[in-house]
Design a protein around this nucleic acid. Sequence first.
DNA 1: CCGCAACTTGACGCCATGTCAAGAGATCAG
DNA 2: CTGATCTCTTGACATGGCGTCAAGTTGCGG
Lengths: 193, 193
Amino acid sequence: MSRDQISTKSRILDTTWSLLETGKSAVRMSDIAKAVGISRQALYLHFPTRAELLVATTRHIDDVKNVEARLEKSRSATTGIDRLHAFIEAWGGYIPEIIGVSAALRAMRDAESAKAWDDRMQAVRHGCEAAVRAIAEDGRLKPELTQRDATDLLWTLLSVETWERLVRDCGWTQDRYEQTIKDLAEAALVARG
Amino acid sequence: MSRDQISTKSRILDTTWSLLETGKSAVRMSDIAKAVGISRQALYLHFPTRAELLVATTRHIDDVKNVEARLEKSRSATTGIDRLHAFIEAWGGYIPEIIGVSAALRAMRDAESAKAWDDRMQAVRHGCEAAVRAIAEDGRLKPELTQRDATDLLWTLLSVETWERLVRDCGWTQDRYEQTIKDLAEAALVARG
DNA sequence: CCGCAACTTGACGCCATGTCAAGAGATCAG
DNA sequence: CTGATCTCTTGACATGGCGTCAAGTTGCGG
């Protein structure tokens, strides 16, 4: 296991990640194997299916990019609005890091991949929920919105698909995306005061 | 061709449509053939590829649901805001009709399908553009927004993915979806007056 | 009766995932 | 040194879609 300086498993994860980030639509098991410099079959010695390799890759990116630390910042915000902004920056800024593996995972049609992606989205939803709760506790949530509805809306604004539309399809910069989502989220959720 | 009361081609299109609307993820050529009551190979006598069958199905739905007439209503609105509302009703209300074939088309990874879907989305974008222009001509467009930016935003709000998030994932009713998108679009695009 | 058009049956190629079997080469324990 | 084990290799094979090909069959119009 510790024979190689960097374990084959990590090299597989890094390589998978970088291949996916190139945006090429078809990243096959054989492509990954070739890029790592091992046989296709050796891949299956480390990851039983393509789906599990992709899921492991997302976790690997989380480790490397330290997603927990990013989200910590949003949790320590004092006002609800600050928390909203910090969360949009944290998650919205994380989307470009995972967009490749995200697209690959969503393109898989099997139940296992769907569930893995869904779990991740539920985690984001919890972040939205917390931001909405903080706004509500400040008494700034629009009175006609339940916390549930507000969470649904924020979650939709922060979906990867929305990011793809604006940044990839419409050519927006990351900064403009983040600023616009902040404005939109405020307009949608926060009572004018 | 006119031997059958209803031509095989139409039966294929109707059957494909209804199979896709059931929401089953895997609708294979053999599934469609079986449901139509013909051999799988006969399908290929009418449609050379699965992609072309799907594209033909969207056009068939357009015919049956008379999408042109729906959009006509939005074009005849007098004020920009009315036009915005009418367009959101027209397209937003059309999404549930095509959601099945839309998902199938987006799930195809080949260039032909991607282009077909893209063309359709560009048509929607033109509708957004027209609504934004009408608002601008009324002098009600937010001064900090270019028409281009406003179109990008409206187009994103009206994406099929946004509909899926709110209606399918969050369980919103169609009415609530339409009302919320209208509110959100107004908040995002229209200057307070 | 001929011929064509629509359809059938059955086989095949392609391609990607995933499986299986039989090793090769390095390392480590005794 | 020997044998066990772990990682990786080569090569073959199954499976499940799509798409293709060839050789019928059926039914109708001329």
